[in-house]
Amino acid sequence: MKRFMTWWYAFSMPKRGPDTTPGERERSRYARLTSGFLLLICALFLPLAPIMIFDSPNSPSSPPIGIGTLILLACAFGFGKAGWNYISAAFIVAYNILCISAVMATNPLDPSLLPLFGIFSVSVIMAGALLPPVASLVVGVLCCLDIALISQLVPHTLAYQQMLDKGLFTVTLIVPVSIQLMISVMTYVIMRNLINTIRRADRAEEIVSLQQELALHVRTQVQQKQQLEEGFQKIAETHARISNGDLSVRVNLSEGHMLWNVAGSLNNLLNRMQRMKSDADMLIATRQAAYQVSNVLHQAVTMGTINNVHLPTTGTPLDPVIIELNNVARSATSHSQSRYGNTLGQH
């Protein structure tokens, strides 16, 4: 049953997003209630509609009544599907009034038909439930006028006329009208109090939801404040170590931290500065090595010991040059020794 009602609501109501405000929840309640009443009326009337329209030879008024009520129900469904809940509810109330009025107006008034006046109370209750509560008072007055017009304008049977002649108009008119007025006032009071209670409950629920959101917001702010304090502390410590010449330090913040982008930019800057410092140190070491190599070579040339020079490596880009110089020096020494040996052999 629950699955069927879910399908029916989806079929007969417009598609909307989730209800987030009290006004939207109240609108959805009215829409579901209107749709539920429409389903009940269709389940009761639609099986009888073909009989009223096509198989009522003894009641010429049945086909027009059946067609009129079908039109009212179709309008109620169409306006409900379009989201016009109040108009859809008005057609449902009009359907109920039309059914009773048509039966009473197309048949001579008889004491056996008097109980039908009581069915007008259903219209009053439906108006109070599906429309704003004041609608029950309006529909109640309309039903009283309808009862008065039917009592005065519709032809009477002999038994009904005898009741009037005996002065029992209180039974035929005053009692039905009084019942409609009493029910309309009671429905108005009950529905107004019920709606006010529901609205207060919605406001209380909204307040609770706002309190939860506020508490969550406060917790989020506290967490963000703690993150900021932690991030600023780590960044301050990093700057302090940088000022002392330590370029290997990094800001250790996890991804998703509020200051993660700042920390990432600072770490990238430190990486570049560290590479620049390393390059600068290497350049200084290279200059020093070049100066030492030039001194050693100058002394060797001056003293004539260039063939005996052996330069140590320095761990700088000059090492390939130093290695090549050492190779040249060894080659020159080997060549000199071979020439000296040849000279001794000749003597």
Score class of each variant (00 low, 15 high):
Pro133Asp: 02
Pro133Tyr: 10
Pro133Met: 06
Pro133Arg: 14
Pro133Ile: 13
Pro133Val: 15
Pro133Asn: 10
Val134Gly: 12
Val134Ser: 13
Val134Met: 14
Ala135Gln: 03
Ala135Val: 01
Ala135Thr: 14
Ala135Arg: 08
Ala135Pro: 09
Ser136Thr: 05
Ser136Lys: 06
Ser136Tyr: 03
Leu137Tyr: 05
Leu137Glu: 06
Leu137Pro: 05
Val138Met: 09
Val138Tyr: 11
Val138Cys: 00
Val139Tyr: 06
Val139Gln: 00
Gly140Pro: 12
Gly140Asp: 06
Gly140Glu: 05
Gly140Ser: 06
Val141Ser: 02
Val141His: 03
Val141Pro: 01
Val141Gly: 04
Leu142His: 01
Leu142Asn: 01
Leu142Thr: 09
Leu142Arg: 01
Leu142Glu: 09
Cys143Arg: 08
Cys143Gln: 00
Cys144Lys: 07
Leu145Tyr: 02
Leu145His: 02
Asp146Phe: 00
Asp146Leu: 04
Asp146Pro: 00
Asp146Cys: 10
Asp146Asn: 12
Ile147Trp: 00
Ile147Ser: 05
Ile147Leu: 08
Ala148Glu: 08
Ala148Trp: 11
Ala148Asp: 01
Leu149Phe: 03
Leu149Gln: 14
Leu149Arg: 13
Leu149Ile: 14
Ile150Val: 13
Ile150Gly: 05
Ser151Leu: 05
Ser151Val: 11
Ser151Cys: 07
Gln152Asn: 10
Gln152Arg: 10
Gln152Lys: 14
Gln152Tyr: 14
Leu153Ile: 09
Val154Arg: 12
Val154Leu: 10
Val154Ser: 10
Val154Ile: 13
Val154Asp: 00
Pro155Tyr: 02
Pro155Asp: 15
Pro155Glu: 05
His156Trp: 11
His156Ala: 07
His156Ile: 11
His156Tyr: 12
His156Cys: 01
Thr157Asn: 06
Thr157Gln: 03
Leu158Val: 11
Leu158Gly: 11
Leu158Lys: 07
Leu158His: 15
Ala159Ser: 15
Ala159Met: 01
Tyr160Thr: 01
Tyr160Arg: 05
Gln161Arg: 12
Gln161Asn: 07
Gln161Ser: 15
Gln161Val: 07
Gln162Lys: 07
Gln162Met: 12
Gln162Phe: 09
Gln162Glu: 14
Gln162Asp: 15
Gln162Cys: 01
Met163Phe: 06
Met163Ile: 03
Met163Pro: 10
Leu164Met: 14
Leu164Ile: 13
Leu164Ser: 04
Asp165Asn: 08
Asp165Cys: 04
Asp165Gly: 08
Asp165Leu: 07
Lys166Ser: 05
Lys166Cys: 02
Lys166Ala: 07
